[in-house]
């Protein structure tokens, strides 16, 4: 299991398109993935789960991956946040 703390830096936060992109990215991995925010944990492969966090700019998240490719899944996840979901801002 790998855990990592991250802060949302893209302007629109985990809005619909970003949530969809996150879920689609994780679908390429076998590992389970979870996101915790304000004491609530959701399945990061569930688009409605991720959206229900309603997590905006500046919100702190805990990412967790668990499974055979957990390191690669976590790297892809962190990369997506660091790239600001390719939204440019």
């Amino acid at each position: 299991m790998i855990e990592k703390d991250i802060v949302i830096t893209n302007k629109l936060g985990l809005h619909a398109r970003a949530s969809a992109k996150l879920v689609q990215t994780l679908h390429g991995f076998q590992s389970s993935a979870f996101i915790s925010c304000r004491g609530k944990e959701v399945n990061a492969k569930s688009i409605m789960g991720v959206m229900m966090l309603a997590a905006g700019l500046g919100v702190a998240l805990k990412l967790r991956t668990e499974g055979p490719d957990e390191a690669a899944a976590m790297a892809a996840l962190v990369d997506l946040f660091e790239r600001k979901f390719d939204e440019g801002q």
């Binding site: 619909a16 969809a20 879920v23 569930s46 688009i47 409605m48 959206m51």
Partner: peptide, 9 residues
């Protein structure tokens, strides 16, 4: 919309 998005996921 949540129903449709979830189905497509």
């Amino acid at each position: 919309l949540p129903m449709l998005l979830r189905v497509l996921n």
